[in-house]
Amino acid sequence: MTPLLQVRGITKFYGARLGCRDVGFDLYPGEVMGIVGESGSGKTTLLGCLAGQIAPDAGEVLFDTRADGPRDTLTMSEPERRMLSRTDWAFVHQHARDGLRMGVSAGGNVGERLMAVGARHYGEIRGQAADWLGRVEIPDDRIDDRPTAFSGGMQQRLQIARNLVTGPRLVFMDEPTGGLDVSVQARLLDLLRGLVREMGLSAIIVTHDLAVVRLLADRLMVMKDGHVVESGLTDQVLDDPQHGYTQLLVSSVLQV
């Protein structure tokens, strides 16, 4: 089976300062990979490089496109990459307002992404938007409300609906449960797991929350100072960490 994503030697410097260095991995269809590390470890930089938002200094990101098989998204033309990010890719931001249009209704937020890929029939767009709002448990009667009138958890679920409505194959998530109440987090985790399973999605999740990756990610990469210090099965890395930094990270978690 061809990996959905093949990442090789991704390196990014900000001037003299290192963002991330020589990161590589394969991600297969249906796999969820977590990336953990403390603030400044380079995980968000890496995610930006993978999702085409930051241009790395070196490396390649081969995505298995529907039409032409694996292609390096870093050397693609800008319109091609934009098309990918509207169709096969989705990006869930930590702050919902970075991924939503705050001045547009909830239904409009979901519908807009459909229109970007060519949907034109108003009734169908609204119907699909309503269906997706239902799937992320946003009540019917809120479809015409703006996200500014939503709670943080609802905004985050709306962002997920907006991203998944076009049936992407790869979802990038940056701290998707960060800043949410634990009860809301649990509901979101359940939602994400169900969607990953039902839609056969692959996902890359950046977080500093080890409990979140344990429940959501099949595989785990641990980053420190721009380098990947350890990777493997999520439960193996968390239960039998090999690197000193991972051992410190795991032993520092507060138990509840």
């Binding site: 493997g232 099965l233 193996q236 239960d239 039998d240 090999q242």
Partner: peptide, 9 residues
């Protein structure tokens, strides 16, 4: 047992 499951290396 954990080694058989791949939980311990």
């Amino acid at each position: 047992m954990r080694m058989i499951y791949g939980n311990y290396l």
